[in-house]
Design a protein around this nucleic acid. Structure first.
Lengths: 233, 233
DNA sequence: TGACGGAATTAGGCAAGACTAATAATATTG
DNA sequence: CAATATTATTAGTCTTGCCTAATTCCGTCA
């Protein structure tokens, strides 16, 4: 028994499908050469990919003839292209990325996001566009945070702290951002780089926060928790 | 001349690094067996990956001994883990995804998003949390749109239409969502499934929209444009 | 119609990353 | 301390996806 056709496509095959999609839309059909040029691969690689896609019934392929998509191939290509489009527009309009950068990132992201997420992103984008105050609020916050190329590394450090974790969550400490005595005291308590902390709970006010580290329980003031940068699990 | 260490890691090696990161945080060091179990691979695959990671100076590795991360390995692992965390939390808190689904999607997405985008997502998430009206507005919109599992396919069709495109953008038509006479008229004008349209411009009011199709220019009323589902380029 | 040039295909190689099977090292335990 | 059990490593295979080099096909033009 042979399984000659599987539904799911690799990132690479999705790229071939998209190249055919756009070329066929513009010219009626694609030639191997067009595809090779678009994807930056050699013609022989295209032949191989076409054979695989034909086995999976996504393209009409006869050696030496023009290539077109089957109905399933068209649907599949349209889905990938739609994800690409939505993700890129989201990166540009909501996250304020440069168009060229967004395009490049979208080329990778289109292969790893499900349709479901792409649709939700589109909905979010629509919502943001419909509320100009939010659009400007977000873009202003992003702009002031990423004004300088130097900033991101600083921001990254402080993005998530023990104070941001939910009850029951575990995290690894990556830095204690505080000079002098406080930092030393925290490190002495075991709260150093690489240590695993688990948030046990917090008082209703959110202060203090009970954490567990190396088996010991500890109560941290919110101000202390907020200087401990972590990576959450 | 040999190049024994390259900076960039494959998705697979990033996974190994993360597995070591979490295990080492919990137990001080990792064993090949732990890693194999976490990643669902055989022990022999782990050995291979460790050799590669050791060459790249991301892990301290001596055959048969416990495995720990180097300083660079820790940084790299923390960055991947941070992307994972941010993306998952974004999927859950902003996009309203189920935690389990979000976790799974994050496992793939962590490898294809740049740190820059992850940070911007975190900023957006922070903004949303700080504006309860936005949070509830988005979640309400998402909830009513994805109430039923049947809906997504319907939604997908109508997500992007000719009316949503910017001037100069190209797109492929995937469906004309209109019964009877209008659909027939549009298809007769060449606006059928698979056709490439290019938006030439729109009147200041956004109506009518001038498009080019197969070399011909055409003016579409906004109501017409809005029933033509496309995939944007 | 036959020869040429460009385009496409085949054949064979290489790297990554998984696997199995066999072997070697370490741990455990009587 | 030796026998056994567990864990890790090596060796060799398979698949995917790219490559180069050699060959084959097709259209054009003299």
């Amino acid at each position: 028994m042979t399984f000659e056709s599987t539904k799911s496509l690799s990132a690479s095959l999705e790229d071939y499908l998209q190249a055919i999609f756009w070329t066929a839309a513009a010219k009626g059909a694609a030639r191997a050469k067009d595809i090779a040029r678009q994807l930056g691969v050699k013609a022989s690689s295209v032949t191989g990919a076409l054979q695989t896609l034909a086995e999976k019934r996504f393209v009409h392929y006869q050696p030496y003839e023009a290539i077109t998509l089957t109905a399933e191939g068209f649907d599949e290509a349209a889905r990938v292209a739609q994800r690409h489009f939505i993700v890129r527009e989201f990166f540009v309009t909501v996250l304020g990325l440069d168009r060229a950068v967004a395009e490049e990132e979208a080329c990778r992201t289109e292969h790893c996001l499900g349709d479901d997420i792409a649709e939700r992103l589109a909905t979010l984008m629509e919502f943001v566009k419909a509320h100009p105050d939010m659009e400007s609020g977000v873009s202003q916050l992003l702009a002031e945070r990423y004004r300088s190329a130097e900033i991101p590394a600083q921001v990254r450090r402080g993005l998530v702290t023990v104070a941001d974790l939910r009850s029951g969550q575990k995290a690894v400490i990556v830095a204690v951002r505080s000079g002098g005595a406080l930092a030393r005291r925290l490190v002495d308590m075991g709260l150093g780089r690489g240590a695993l902390v688990e948030v046990e709970g917090a008082a209703p006010t959110g202060d203090p926060i009970r954490v567990k580290i190396r088996g010991y329980q500890l109560a941290l003031r919110r101000t202390e928790a907020a200087v401990i940068s972590v990576v959450g699990k």
